[in-house]
Write a protein that binds this DNA or RNA. Structure first.
Lengths: 189, 189
DNA sequence: ATCTCTTTTTACCATATGGTAAGTGCTTTC
DNA sequence: GAAAGCACTTACCATATGGTAAAAAGAGAT
């Protein structure tokens, strides 16, 4: 819980009274491996903060292939945020890659916090911007890299995740086949 | 100028008095093809709004290759925004791909607007978020697509830009060689 | 018009990656 | 302990893309 508050305080100042309010709204949610946090075709009902575990964002392209385009691990927010804020149906899945423990906030509680704490919208705005920027910094360079470099970039950007995520998901994230990634792993060692 | 105000009003309400203030701070800037709007190693001094023309964001990778990772055209803001807000040196270039006309704001004028207009930070926050999201939506899918699909995606996401941007820049953006792109163009028609 | 410079297209071969298929190893279940 | 189910690795061949080089096509200047 401290990690959660610390995370938020990076983006703005809040007093004890305010952080207590936030914490009081948080519910605990456990997800088993492969369970969904939110699903395509459904309205995202909550914002989460990962205490333990890893989730991935994925969608299906027009060939029916499942594309993983983002991973999130401990001490980060997880949310299909545009869709959550607008309360409209999502077009992608957020799925637990490992068993997970999260703090979650319902839309109502999230809005309550915003209506009570002056400056909360500002803080969450900064957090969202920060997450989007990190996503771009990780994903965008892959476009111009070859498969081996992509894998090395992945290791650099997600240190500690390589051994916790199935090879097939990493390959999908990197835009290569799992056979290719397996071959690359062999060549590297 | 109307297009500029209309753009801003998409993200929040402002009265005539407020929009007049904003307009009064805007300076006109013309860039010739290939001139830089901001440069790696220098602090970005201004935020721009493109009235005419196209710019690109590019950097050099560790092999010395120039990588174009973003295009911006008419009626959009252009800014190395993180670096501009923090007033720290940039690590990439923003260059005019065609002759350009822009409205620009110095850091001081930009801050003045923020200190005068209540809610301005909120509006600019939404604009930045919106731009980042668009960037991700355009760039991220390329990772998992083959060269032909990338080119078709480009045409879809940047309609009207294909004929205004040199082939080499588009190829770089798509992470393929210009020879490959030329071959793909031939195969498509 | 001619020349120069830039941009785009072709060609040829080398190579990385994909597709299909099978094999290995690990974990779970009964 | 055998069977079954996953995850990962290998192998083989087909193919898309890269690298090098040259030719063709445009654009601009004198």
């Amino acid at each position: 819980m401290k990690a959660f508050i610390d995370y938020i305080l990076q983006f703005g100042n809040l007093n004890k009274h305010q952080t207590d309010l936030i914490v009081s709204k948080a519910k605990m949610l456990e997800l088993h491996k492969d369970e969904y946090f939110s699903e395509a075709g459904k309205i995202p009902r909550q914002v989460g903060f990962i205490l333990e575990g890893v989730v991935r964002f994925c969608y299906y392209n027009n060939k029916g292939q499942e594309i993983t385009h983002h991973f999130i691990d401990e001490n980060n927010f997880v949310s299909d945020h545009q869709k959550f804020e607008a309360q409209v149906v999502a077009s992608e899945y957020i799925q637990a890659v490992t068993d997970c423990k999260l703090l979650v906030f319902s839309k109502k509680d999230w809005d309550d916090i915003g209506n009570t704490i002056v400056g909360w919208d500002n803080i969450t705005g900064l957090i969202v911007k920060n997450c989007l920027l990190k996503t771009i910094e990780r994903r965008s360079p892959l476009v111009s890299e070859d498969a081996t470099t992509r894998y090395l970039s992945f290791i650099e950007h997600f240190p500690g995740l390589v051994n916790r995520i199935p090879l097939s998901h990493i390959a999908s994230y990197l835009g290569i086949t799992q056979q290719s990634l397996s071959r690359i792993r062999k060549n590297i060692r």
